[in-house]
Design a protein around this nucleic acid. Sequence first.
DNA 1: GTGACCACCTGGCCGC
DNA 2: TGCGGCCAGGTGGTCA
Length: 274
Amino acid sequence: MPELPEVETVKNTLKNLITGKEIRDIDIFYSKMIRNATESEFKITFMGKTIKDIDRYGKYLIFLFDDIALISHLRMEGKYFIKDIDLPREKHEHVIFYFTDGTTLRYNDTRKFGTYDICEIKDIYTNSPISKLGYEPFEKEVTFNYLQNKLQKKSIAIKSSLLDQTILTGLGNIYVDEVLFLSKIHPETQSNKLTKRNIQDIIKYSREVLNKAIKLGGTTIRSYTSSLGVTGRFQNELLIHMRKDEACYTCGTTIDKIKVNGRGTYYCKECQKK
DNA sequence: GTGACCACCTGGCCGC
DNA sequence: TGCGGCCAGGTGGTCA
């Protein structure tokens, strides 16, 4: 599933391929994914517009036009592909952007969880889904005091707090498991019971894990692949996630899988004691 | 304000 | 083989 590193990979791939292209037409086959506009409003907004740049914040992809932005969240299985206009539509292609040069950008999403929001560029950080997000772990604002202040109000499991995008944005189920393993924190530990060292480790390893994953193009597991067949290599570096019943690389103990607030969670009961 | 739960959605897997 | 049920998961909405 696309988390921050995967979205960064998609952004970089698309940026090189579609920046400067003009949208001639748009076909929408699943309009429910557009959250703040009708199908016709969506078409009118972007037809005739040129993609000036592509950006990313957290897990959101941002297509920038002159004064308008299209904010795309890939959720579980959203992907983009660039194809020639004459190729037939595949089953899960829900939106097709036709460019004036004869190519198309196709949004493919098996589970139809992905979303689109339209907003003015000046409002991206004040009045859009992005405005509700916390900081990305590598931003300078993420300090011990910032995270401690956020977590001390929370009695829920730290796993759930780290998945809360209003505290830190960009971490998803895979990377939270990795960060907690490296930090030697049990995923069910109450957020407000963490030590100073725990919080410092979460910041340190969030940065470390995300930076490494970005360098490797993200993680390609289950049904998720990046756009244009670009696949990440971080799945080969996973220390804990998806390793149920395998031996912990640190202590050899068999890795457990539990549910934390409904999320599948991998941990080592020896390295990550409560 | 906080936390728990549910809906969204479909393919894959498992047991019968 | 075919069917039904469960699971996966990010986010937003609802309710206590």
